[in-house]
Design a protein around this nucleic acid. Structure first.
Lengths: 177, 177
DNA sequence: TGAAACTAGTACATCTATTAACTAATGTGA
DNA sequence: TCACATTAGTTAATAGATGTACTAGTTTCA
């Protein structure tokens, strides 16, 4: 199994080819790490793209828009800063996104009382209704994806992904502002 | 452990809170799936952001730029279409990106001989040199990330991620063009 | 108390990615 | 063989995300 014909290359034979060349021709040593991160990146992109394209875009929401509304729905009212942390976006992204969601009538902003600089995000009634409906579809789709794995496998996967990112204080990781 | 004080919310207590509310207040049933996909998305974003910010941006490469050069390096010369498949980008994205990488002197394009419509991408000498150097740093960083897990755990993680996305023909998945 | 350091949010310029529409080459089948 | 459908790639308009710089509120501590 050489997979050297580029015409036949799919993702897996590419990873195999890449590993072989990186090791033999260039002497790189951390093949398994490369394979892991390529696979992680790819899996996340595929799933995310599908959810966005099949569930959210048709209803006029972007993936980020959904994520912001999602955390606001379940943990709101939330300070903008907190929303950025939970969604993994930058503060600037939340600010921009909030502007459009407010003008769509889904999100509402009011000044924070505790801290005069802060802004509290919460859902409007329309936003709340919309989330309940969108999430119904979203959750079914999630289950189709996850259903490929047994509950036990899902739990292991969650545990490993968590372990991968929570021990990151052991070295100096670059995160968003 | 209630984590109901929003001031204390981190990603994990948010997931817990979300699960509880989705189940109790709204009756949604697929908690584990939600948790899995949230975790997958987050892990991928954190790792990718760190690699981009610590390795690639300082050298003037975007994450996508790196990915395109990476596949071209190891599997090239490649048709544009194939590069899009392997990197998971749209054809338009590859086309745009190639334009800038060509003008940076890293990538070269020539007409395909077999098919008059196609374009073959390959690295310039500079591009090749650059990749060998960038990847040295990239690969060390990958190993720092992956090193949190044992090789056995890494293999299991790869296997599970792979299983998650390869059985997707069982339902109708939306992919990029 | 008041100056300096810090923090939350926003504005702006830039860059990237997306979809849709288009051009040109290729394949297909009556 | 010739019309029709497909396919590869590019372009253009738009949307979204980034970093930087700025404003304004808050904290710190001399």
């Amino acid at each position: 199994m050489t997979a050297s014909d580029p015409g036949e290359l799919d993702f897996w034979s590419f990873v195999e080819l890449a590993n072989r060349r990186l090791a033999r021709e260039y002497g790189f040593r951390h093949q398994l790490a490369t394979e892991l991160l390529l696979t992680l990146n790819r899996a996340s992109n595929i799933v995310t793209y599908d959810l966005e394209a099949s569930v959210h875009r048709p209803r006029g929401l972007s993936w980020s828009g959904f994520r912001l509304l999602f955390v606001t729905w379940l943990a709101g009212p939330l300070e903008s800063k907190k929303a950025a942390e939970l969604t993994g976006m930058s503060r600037a992204a939340v600010s921009n996104l909030a502007k459009t969601l407010v003008s769509d009538g889904l999100l509402s902003r009011e000044a924070g009382s505790r801290d005069g600089r802060s802004v509290l995000l919460s859902l409007t009634d329309t936003g709340h209704q919309e989330m309940v409906e969108v999430f119904r579809v979203h959750n079914e789709r999630e289950d189709e994806w996850a259903g490929v794995l047994s509950p036990e496998e899902q739990r292991i996967l969650i545990m490993l992904l968590d372990k991968l990112v929570t021990n990151r204080d052991q070295f100096d990781v670059r995160g968003r502002n």
